[in-house]
Amino acid sequence: MAKLSCNAENCVNNVTGAFCTAGVIHIKGNNAHSSEGTICSTFAEKNFKNAVVSMTNTNYTGELMQIFSGNEIAVSPGIKCGAVRCVYNENENCHAPNVLINGEHSVSQLSTQCETFVER
Score class of each variant (00 low, 15 high):
S34W: 07
Q66E: 04
P97N: 10
L100Y: 15
N10S: 11
V52Q: 03
H105W: 13
A32R: 06
V53E: 11
C86K: 10
N102D: 15
F117Q: 10
E92K: 08
E36Q: 07
A96I: 02
N91M: 03
N10Q: 10
Y88H: 14
V118L: 11
C20V: 11
P77A: 03
T112H: 01
G78R: 06
S76E: 04
T21C: 14
N10C: 11
G29T: 01
I73T: 14
T56F: 13
P77N: 00
H95C: 10
T116N: 06
V107S: 11
S111T: 10
Q113W: 10
Y88I: 12
V24H: 12
G103N: 02
E63A: 11
F48C: 10
N98E: 09
Q109V: 12
I39A: 05
P77H: 02
T38C: 06
M55Q: 10
H105T: 13
A32C: 10
N98P: 08
N91D: 12
C94H: 08
T56E: 11
A8C: 08
S76C: 04
T42S: 07
N13P: 07
K46M: 08
Q113G: 06
S35D: 09
N98G: 10
Q109D: 13
R85F: 07
V87K: 13
N30A: 09
V12A: 15
V87Y: 06
M55E: 13
N13T: 06
N57F: 09
K46N: 02
S108K: 12
V24S: 12
T61E: 07
C20L: 13
S111Y: 01
F19V: 12
V53P: 01
A18R: 05
R120Q: 08
L100H: 10
N13C: 09
S111R: 10
C6F: 00
A18N: 02
C6N: 01
C94L: 03
K3W: 08
I27E: 00
A18V: 06
T56D: 11
K80C: 09
A44I: 08
V75P: 02
N89W: 01
I101A: 00
Q66R: 05
I27Q: 01
I27T: 00
Q66T: 04
S35K: 15
P97A: 10
F117P: 09
S108L: 04
C114E: 00
S54F: 04
A32S: 15
K3Y: 11
G103I: 04
L64K: 03
C86M: 10
G70E: 04
S34E: 11
E63Q: 15
N50F: 09
G17V: 06
C114F: 00
E63D: 13
V84S: 15
M1E: 01
A22D: 02
C40S: 02
T61S: 05
K80I: 07
N30K: 07
V52Y: 03
M55D: 08
G29L: 01
A74N: 07
S34I: 04
F48Q: 14
K46F: 03
T112C: 05
G78C: 12
L64R: 02
G70V: 05
C6S: 07
E63N: 15
V24R: 12
S111N: 03
C86W: 03
K80N: 09
S76A: 06
G62L: 00
N30E: 14
T21N: 05
C94P: 02
I25R: 01
N30L: 11
A22R: 03
V99T: 08
N91H: 02
F43P: 05
A96E: 01
S35L: 09
C6A: 06
C20I: 14
T56L: 11
P77E: 00
A51T: 12
